[in-house]
Design a protein around this nucleic acid. Sequence first.
DNA 1: AGCCAGGCTACCG
DNA 2: CGGTAGCATGGC
Length: 197
Amino acid sequence: MLHAQYKRLLEKHGAQGWWPLNGQYNPGDYSHPKNEAQRFEICVGAILTQNTAWKNAEKALKEMIKQKLLSAEAITESPLQKLSAAIKPAGYYNQKAKKLKIFSKFFAETKKPEREQLLGLWGIGEETADSILLYAYKQPEFVVDAYTKRLFKLNKPYAEIKAMFENALPKDYRIYNEFHALIVAEGKRAAANSNRK
DNA sequence: AGCCAGGCTACCG
DNA sequence: CGGTAGCATGGC
């Protein structure tokens, strides 16, 4: 049963304190984002970390802060060149700069996005949409990623896996938040173990 | 010194 | 439709 797995992982790793804001984790505190700036930072992080180690996404975020690019307005006004250069450490920087531009415009004109709206944006797929809804908007949307499929040996379409978790768990964004973060923690540990052998 | 990260799009058959 | 090449850097 998945809820038992959740408890097991929580005991094993402890609360993860997602989503990290400005490099800071807040275990057990599900009150973030506290303002629009934090909300936007989470969305940007979700895009920057696509198929990319969080460490690299974080470097890009830091550079954006340094260059005062971490706001929807700044991104919209920035030349594409400047933006892509700033996020270079996150990889796929040409694509991601474009994605950030498209998303920033959307963010500025949308109070609370629907999932379908997010999916309609170029550069936002299912996982990124759910990450944004869950971590930036506290909506109970379970996030499925590569670790989730690997850990539970699920070779099925995204929607099926998502439904499976959502049906097995209380519809509480805090649990979805923690569970996904724990799955990533466990997945990372598993990868580290198989490397040193 | 490769392999692979908290994916997505475009294109192929 | 399902499958896959391309996108790119940095950590280990």
